[in-house]
């Protein structure tokens, strides 16, 4: 039944036999050992796994900031695994939005300018003022990162990531540096983006609680997808507990 459900949805990105090896001095570390999975249009995906399981590596590869040692990444029918740097940049520019654990806002740009920075890159950008409104910081657009709390900074980081109106929003431990209630606010925002703009959101986390709000959960272990589960009834972000 789950397969039947998935077969009705459009695959936006497909990971096929991806491996990734790192050379650390004389030691070769196998971060991914032949990973296969698909990401569907408009789904809310959570990738779970302990440290060193390969979840961040796969996110970086999907995001076009790292390349696999072998295997294919098919984005909308096109293999992006062998793209040159220039084309990978184009891919990141138009198709992917990133949210980081430590926000990575540009310290000498205000909240509004940080969002503008991304919106200037896209011809299909979302309205900066609407986004500020959505993240609840319309009155703080002129504040610099140093003048905002961690939660506010992460909200700006999400707005910046979605400002380009990307197909996929990739989030690396987006609540990792936040307290519980701020984390919930951030998750609500991600869900809102997923629903309102019908965009795909993929979150990697070691926080199993978050998986309850996902449409689908991928469990990573030792560089492989260990388990895939589908939530028939994903919970509301406000109901998530950890």
């Amino acid at each position: 039944m789950k397969d039947a459900l998935n077969s009705q949805r459009e695959v936006i990105l497909s990971i096929e036999d991806i491996t990734k090896e790192y050379h650390m001095g004389e030691i070769i570390v196998q971060a991914l050992r032949g990973v296969n999975f698909k990401i569907y249009q408009g789904e809310f995906l959570v990738i779970l796994g302990p440290s060193g399981s390969g979840k961040s590596t796969v996110l970086n590869i999907i995001g076009g900031i790292d390349q696999p040692t072998a295997g294919k990444i098919i984005y909308k029918g096109k293999d992006i695994s062998g793209l040159k740097e220039k084309d990978l940049t184009k891919y990141r520019r138009s198709s992917v939005g990133f949210v980081f654990q430590f926000y990575n806002l540009i310290p000498n740009l205000t909240a509004k300018e940080n969002i503008q920075l991304a919106s200037e890159l896209s011809s299909n950008a979302l309205s900066v003022s609407d986004l500020l409104e959505t993240i609840g910081l319309a009155d703080r657009g002129g504040h610099f990162p140093s003048q905002m709390s961690g939660g506010q900074q992460q909200r700006v980081a999400i707005a910046r990531a979605v400002a380009k109106n990307p197909e996929i929003l990739l989030c690396d431990e987006p609540t990792g540096a936040l307290d519980f209630s701020t984390g919930i606010q951030v998750l609500k925002l991600l869900k809102e983006f997923n629903k309102k703009y019908k965009r795909t959101v993929a979150i990697i986390t070691h926080n199993a609680g978050i998986s309850e709000m996902a449409d689908r959960v991928l469990y990573f272990k030792d560089g492989l997808v260990d388990l895939v589960t589908v939530n028939d009834n994903p919970v509301d972000p406000e109901e998530v507990r950890w």
Binding site: R92, R93, I106
Partner: peptide, 10 residues
């Protein structure tokens, strides 16, 4: 690096 991830060319 953040700008590069955002999609800015070198």
């Amino acid at each position: 690096a953040t700008l590069r991830v955002l999609g800015l060319h070198i």
